[in-house]
Design a protein around this nucleic acid. Structure first.
Lengths: 115, 115
DNA sequence: CAGTCTAGTTCCGGTTCCGAAACAAGAGGG
DNA sequence: CCCTCTTGTTTCGGAACCGGAACTAGACTG
């Protein structure tokens, strides 16, 4: 458990945003970021429908986010063989590395936030 | 000073992203967010040129971000009377409230992150 | 008062995203 | 089988954003 005052939170958000903008990293939408983090942090399996429900958006939003992130190699799709209507969303090495860098960046920046 | 492990950082980012997506809040780009936070957290005056330099982007990027956020009322522009080439970027009530909510949200979520 | 420099904006075309509706493919019940 | 429901994708027109180049307006120099 962490305890952070709102002012510190904004300061942290600021430095991370700046770092993100300056790095020419794959620039993800808020929605794409939410999908990516959900896939990597919540226990599988992940389906389009499930993600749409959790984010409170429509299914096409998820499909498009997966398209985009799939091209960037951050995530991959596979048919569920037990119910071939389903698509299972899976993690990739590139996605893990990307989030590892993000976590490290936020962690680093958190140490620079003033009392 | 805050000390946050990378895993905790990702968890925090996750819950905040989810909250942002679910709220139909003004959905800002990473760049727009960086501009907004810089305007509100760094000491004035703020100019287009200065913001462009700090973010490492071109001036049109800043102009467009200000256009968008200006429409949403998050920020406003005024001519510098001493050098009328300059445009000074100013804070607004709506912008302050928006960032206040964001800071509060991150702060709240930080308390739900597991050890 | 020309020439030059600076600050910010606008224009160009191309790409990406959006919501809503229509669609294809598979599952399952009578 | 046929009908229906579910799952995910595609299509549509419209809006937002992108980088880079061109442009306007103001300041400053000699």
């Amino acid at each position: 458990m962490i305890n952070m005052r709102p002012g510190q939170a904004l300061s942290l958000w600021h430095s991370v945003s700046l770092a993100q903008v300056r790095a020419d990293d794959p620039d993800l939408t808020t929605r794409q970021m939410a999908v990516l983090l959900t896939v990597y942090l919540d226990p599988p399996p992940h389906t389009v429908r499930g993600l749409a429900a959790q984010l409170g958006v429509t299914k096409p939003v998820i499909t498009r986010a997966l398209d985009t992130m799939g091209i960037k190699g951050l995530v991959s799709r596979r048919r569920d063989e037990r119910d071939r209507r389903n698509v299972l969303i899976q993690r990739t090495v590139a996605g893990s590395e990307f989030l590892e860098r993000l976590g490290h960046l936020v962690s680093e920046q958190s140490r620079t936030v003033p009392m």
